[in-house]
C-alpha cells in the first residue's frame, strides 16, 4: 500500500530525493528509514534533546517534529553532508581534537546546531554558544569541551579562556 502515497520531493545534502510515505511521517523517520541516513538520531521524540537536529532551508529544526510533507521542496542538511571528499568539516575536526564527542549519540545533532550557529554568527561569544546549543542535550561531556570545540572551529577566543584553563 505504501506505493499509493503521493511522492514528496526534497533535497538532502545536495541530492534530489523523492519518497512515497504518509504525509504525517516524521522527517526523522524518513531520513533514517527511507533514505537510510542514520546519522540523525532520535533521543526523545518530543523536541527536547536535539539529537535529531537537521537544517531545513538553512534553519535548524528538530526533525522529529517535522511532518515530512512540510519538508516538501526543502533543502535538508544532515550530519552526513558535513564532510566533503573524506575531509572532516572544521567542526568535526575540532570536536575530535577537543573531546567534544564522547558517546557520540548527541554528536550529529550537536554538530548541526553548531554549524547553524557559526553560519549565523562566525565568531560567537561563549554566551552565544551556550544559547545556540541549549536545545541539544549531552549527558556525557558537561558541554565544556563542546564549547571549546566550537570556539576552536570558529578560530575565536573572544570572551573565553583557553582550553588549558580547564584541564591540563
Amino acid at each position: 500500500m505504501s506505493a499509493d502515497w503521493p511522492a514528496i520531493r526534497f533535497i538532502v545534502n545536495g541530492e534530489s530525493r523523492a519518497v512515497r510515505v504518509p504525509a504525517m511521517k516524521r522527517l526523522l523517520d524518513v531520513l533514517r528509514e527511507d533514505l537510510r541516513l542514520t546519522g540523525t538520531k532520535e533521543g526523545c521524540g518530543e523536541g527536547e534533546c536535539g539529537s535529531c537536529s537537521v537544517r531545513m532551508n538553512g534553519e535548524l529544526v528538530n526533525s522529529c517534529l517535522v511532518p515530512v510533507l512540510q519538508a516538501e521542496g526543502a533543502e535538508i542538511e544532515t550530519v552526513e553532508g558535513l564532510s566533503s571528499n573524506g575531509a572532516l568539516h572544521p567542526l568535526q575536526q575540532a570536536f575530535l581534537e577537543c573531546g567534544g564527542a564522547q558517546c557520540g549519540i548527541c554528536t550529529p545533532g550537536m554538530l548541526m546546531a553548531a554549524t547553524h550557529l557559526l553560519a549565523r554568527n562566525p565568531h560567537p561569544s561563549l554566551a552565544e554558544i551556550r544559547e545556540g546549543l541549549a536545545g541539544n542535550l549531552c549527558r556525557c561531556t558537561g558541554f565544556i569541551r563542546i564549547f571549546e570545540s566550537v570556539i576552536a572551529a570558529a578560530g575565536s577566543t573572544r570572551g573565553h579562556r583557553g582550553p588549558a584553563d580547564h584541564a591540563r
Binding site: 516524521r26 521524540g45 518530543e46 523536541g47 522529529c64 517534529l65 511532518p67 512540510q70
Partner: peptide, 27 residues
Amino acid sequence: PIAGGTELMVAHAAGRLDAKKLVSLWG
C-alpha cells in the same frame, strides 16, 4: 491546523494526537 508542529508532533510521537485530519499552515 498544524503550523510548526512543536505541539502536535509531540502528541503524535506520544500516540496522543486525536486529530485525524490536519491542514498545514507552514510555508
